[in-house]
Design a protein around this nucleic acid. Structure first.
Length: 418
RNA sequence: GCCCUGGUAGUAUAGAGGCCCAGUAUGCGGCGCUGUCACCGCCGUGACCCGGGUUCGAAUCCCGGCCAGGGCGCCA
């Protein structure tokens, strides 16, 4: 509950417009908690005539009040408004279908069905303010490091990387797809802008129904020419630490009871092969070349805790554009928080012939990448990059159990509305 | 794609064949209360997803449908 606005107005008369969040009535005094510009303000009404006039008010009524700002120790924020006059702007036709304050937190289905109202919940106000702070903190840090923010097409002609399923759409009389990643575009852009990043939507038509998958998610993608694998990891961990430091002091973190997260650079780095070996001694048998499954990652996450990198993934587990280190492993990394994969990245192939070979080996049609490949004939520099799932990062920072809570209007395999 | 679980007032839940014309909390309405802040106290209000079956008797057991939540795999 920030008191910044009220502090500057102490002693003077103000006009407040907002929605009623809570009403507490006593015999000779009435308290209204009003949300104004996403902040709670307490209105106190002592005049019996005004109290009578407030009898028709309800939660979600929009009101306009005029009153004097008073400093008081009796309110957590330190300020309240003593009301001189009040009038109703809009009376809701229906009562709130669920409590916005109080003991009962509705189930996620109920909340998402009436999401616009749910977003008035103080916890959601705090959460989505944090999301916005997080994004601007990322922008600030990457911009300060020479990265240019870009926007790439979300309607594309062919798959960016294979693997994840695409949503087909009609593009005039042709078939097109929603972009699963800005991967190929951001790689091409390092030729001109050297360092770029994008924060934008990605679409995945995977039939996943879990608490950490969305059909439409937000991705932070960064790509930089002349960066190697290690330099990219360093950028990523420094960016994360910067964000965490920015958010740490925010009052919203206390409101949502965000978990304490320690992040000290450099994060631990474990090679994929090392994890496979060490898990084998504790009963997890993973064939070298197979992906680390949920149970294995859970066990490893419990063991090492916090943020860490998994590096040198087998070539066959990574997309075609990742640069092989040798016959078996690649210049690649995943950033993990315990068992949650937050980011994937690595050094990219910049030799056209090698890239073409890898596309073929991945079973993808080389013809479809003709235009992308032609770019490599004009001096494509060595480069590296990463992609971060913004919702997953918010989950970790805010301690959310369900990724749907991290999106205003989530899209998943079972939900397309609202 | 596979598996598990669930659907009870506006919301969140209790309930295991008769104890239930369904209990509790919150919301809402009324009354009381001199500063509340998850206010408090008293009174009132309001519900068993739909269809079929078993049974003397079904919120409870069975079958089907619809809807939802979660897990696995895949992935970020």
């Amino acid at each position: 509950m920030s008191s910044l606005y009220l502090e500057t107005k102490e002693g003077s008369s103000v006009n407040i417009k907002g929605w009623i969040l809570s009403i507490r009535e006593q015999k000779t005094i009435l308290f209204l908690i009003v949300v104004r510009m996403r902040e709670q303000v307490q209105l106190v009404i002592k005049d019996p005539k005004l109290i009578d006039k407030c009898s028709g008010l309800n939660v979600n009524t929009a009101i306009e009040a005029v009153g004097t700002v008073k400093r008081t120790d009796r309110v957590p924020s330190g300020f309240e408004i003593e009301v001189k006059s009040i009038k109703t702007i809009v009376t809701p036709k229906k009562r709130s279908p669920f409590d916005l304050i109080g003991k009962n937190m509705p189930g996620i289905e109920t909340r998402l069905d009436m999401r616009s109202l749910d977003l008035r919940h103080p916890l959601n106000l705090a959460l989505f303010k944090l999301r916005a702070y997080m994004l601007s903190s990322i922008r600030e840090h990457l911009t300060a490091n020479g990265f240019l923010e870009v926007n790439t097409p979300k309607i594309i002609a062919t798959a960016s990387e294979g693997g994840a399923a695409l949503f087909p759409i009609m593009y005039y009389d042709k078939e097109a797809f929603l972009a699963q990643s800005p991967q190929l575009y951001k790689e091409e852009l390092v030729m001109s802008f050297e360092r770029v990043f994008e924060i934008g939507p990605i679409f995945r038509a995977e039939p996943s129904h879990t608490v950490r998958h969305l059909s439409e998610a937000t991705s932070l993608d960064a790509e930089a020419a002349f960066f190697n694998n290690e330099e990219m990891m360093e950028l990523l961990e420094r960016t994360l630490v910067h964000v965490l430091e920015d958010l740490a002091g925010r009052s919203e973190m206390a409101i949502i009871k965000a978990p304490k997260i320690t992040a000290i650079t450099p994060f631990s780095r474990f090679k994929y092969g090392e994890i496979v070996d060490r898990l084998a001694s504790t009963g997890f048998h993973i064939e070298f070349g197979d992906d680390l499954d949920s149970a294995a990652l859970k066990a490893w996450g419990d063991r090492v805790g916090g943020f860490y990198f998994i590096t040198e993934w087998p070539n066959k587990l990574k997309p075609f554009y990742i640069k092989p280190k040798d016959d078996k492993v690649s210049f690649s990394f995943d950033l993990m928080y315990r068992e949650i994969e937050l980011s994937s990245g690595g050094e990219r192939i910049y030799d056209r012939r090698v890239l073409e070979k890898r596309i073929r080996e991945a079973g993808l049609p080389v013809q479809a990448f003709k235009n992308h490949l032609s770019v490599y004939d004009y001096g494509m520099p060595p480069h590296a990059g990463f992609g971060v799932g913004i919702e997953r990062l918010l989950m970790v920072i805010a301690g959310l159990k369900n990724i749907r809570d991290a999106v205003l209007y989530p899209r998943d395999i079972r939900r397309l509305t609202p």
